[in-house]
Design a protein around this nucleic acid. Sequence first.
DNA 1: CTGAAAGCGCTAACAG
DNA 2: CTGTTAGCGCTTTCAG
Lengths: 357, 357
Amino acid sequence: MSHGWKKPTINDVARLAGVSVATVSAVVNGTKVVSPHRTQKVREAMAALDYHADQNARFLRTGKSRVVGVIIPDLANPFYTQVVAAADDVASRAGYSFFLCNSNDDPALEQRHLDMLFSHRVAAVLLASCDSFAAYDRLIRRRFPLVFFDRVPTGFHGSSVETDNHLAAFQATRHLIELGHRSIAILAGSIQRSTHARRLEGFRQAMLESGLPVRDEYCGLSGLSVQAAYEFSLGLLASPRLPTAIFCTSNNLLLGCFRAVERVGLPCPENISIVGFDDFPWNEGFRPAITTVAQPTAAIGAKAMEMLLERIAAGSEGRVLEDQKIVLQPELRLRNSTAPPPNIPSPNELDVTQTAS
Amino acid sequence: MSHGWKKPTINDVARLAGVSVATVSAVVNGTKVVSPHRTQKVREAMAALDYHADQNARFLRTGKSRVVGVIIPDLANPFYTQVVAAADDVASRAGYSFFLCNSNDDPALEQRHLDMLFSHRVAAVLLASCDSFAAYDRLIRRRFPLVFFDRVPTGFHGSSVETDNHLAAFQATRHLIELGHRSIAILAGSIQRSTHARRLEGFRQAMLESGLPVRDEYCGLSGLSVQAAYEFSLGLLASPRLPTAIFCTSNNLLLGCFRAVERVGLPCPENISIVGFDDFPWNEGFRPAITTVAQPTAAIGAKAMEMLLERIAAGSEGRVLEDQKIVLQPELRLRNSTAPPPNIPSPNELDVTQTAS
DNA sequence: CTGAAAGCGCTAACAG
DNA sequence: CTGTTAGCGCTTTCAG
């Protein structure tokens, strides 16, 4: 006895209670009627031994696991943890627990985590993917219950829940345009990311519809890190063609951008408007308070987990569920970081601004 | 076949490869020498079937789990997720995975999570406790590998890693005092929390050492929520005895306090100094940027997980490890939310301020 | 209502 | 080197 303590098994309980293991199992699971007297005996024995049925053994026998896997790309990003918190809520209400994995945005690591989750025979997995859809082929082919959220691999057929990223970016950009902005930069992150690609499209569409140019120098694609955003923004603000507004397509990007604007000392929103993506309690602490387009994090997490549970249930009943793609509405939250540009050029100056240096 | 797919077992692999299960097991685990030819065969069969050894079955046999449980009180609090991210890093490097649980600050839920974790036979658990030490008696008595972090139940004997909360608060308060503040309020959260109790003590000591009074009205104990902090701060700022500085003992408390100061329109730091607790990237975005005392989140997570792994290793070798209590140093980060008070009273006005209304 | 016994997928003696 | 086999702790027929 290395620990000086051996975990009690169902046999120990049965012995102490003076009944058979089948009886113990029956009272534990309430799966059969057991006489009150013996039930009592068993209960006492369980309490005395502090017995906890071994889920691994149980699963081995029943093939029913009450654990789901969750993979996110960044455990330190509040967006993901908010989603996960909501998912956890509905999962734990349904008696499910969580294997949480951090893929660190590394497809190889994500695959390893997936393998690990299979090895543990999780009932399903919830996934903010960082790989291309081909990676999930083997899974969908075997009808493994899988729900994507936030990041849905392009070209992927399967269930997912995400924000309408196109619309979100469109709204944010429209807001800027309506304010009178014409020179709008975007910190787009990386087009590799389906979410960010979609946001860039939304931005493009809003610009195009208003006949506004989308300039390459105004399009930051240097990655998703705070640092990258900071550096790109610094360059942007130092350039002769200073934009009058910047749209940041993620909370990290906003941080970098904000820092750069502060560093340069450009007054916001007087000389530069900023709109962010995602909304958190501390966004109100920023001065100026940040105008941002919020994703419904709680709804994403809750809905995704509900779908997952549904698919688990369907699977165990042999039903086959239609793929379901849920798209949730973003919400533009107007605060103080956006205002009309310093001097609004009249509409027909449009291409003149291009030549002016 | 409800799923149209049956998970391949070691038997399937053995059959396909034309060898025995023992051979398959040997190549999977590298536990015995297998001829190159058969190794090859087995490898092919595994790949063809996309075989993933069932960890549950394996555990049942070996009694060795490579999963650890982690319980935190709030999945949406960046402090905890930063710690967990660091812990995850070292755990996954060691080949361990994570059962993450959110106790929601509810002792009953925490207990349920603990029971669940035992049922799954996790190798150990990492815990930011929300209960009193009595709750963990049964665990320590059986030498279950358990490491506490952040919140360590008072009176608890066992391993833990935490910030020196007393010192952190002491430093923050000293900073304010050195700036000339005499009327310092504290949002202490709740003395139920060991961490917050310790912070209050540090505050007290700093005040006492300087002969400064700790007034009851200046001591916010209305809980840990943003809302509670907001309301308390509002009252504080509306009172005739306006403090010249407020020390917020957590990031949530800071949020509420900051919001209240903004609401009232009191200029910070000119008329009121604020110091926060914990430091996150967005703290720099606040205007003024928040002076805060930072906890070494990454170090806490990494160290705690290292200790946990050590204890697991020791346990399986039959060694008994000494309890280890690690206390990490906080770091005061000076920014712009603190400044000398509007008018510095001379030291001998000390008790006069008490009577003035 | 109750108990005996088979077997889930795997590892680890043990015997060839 | 390789295969056979006995359980790990649990649920679940199947007979009493």
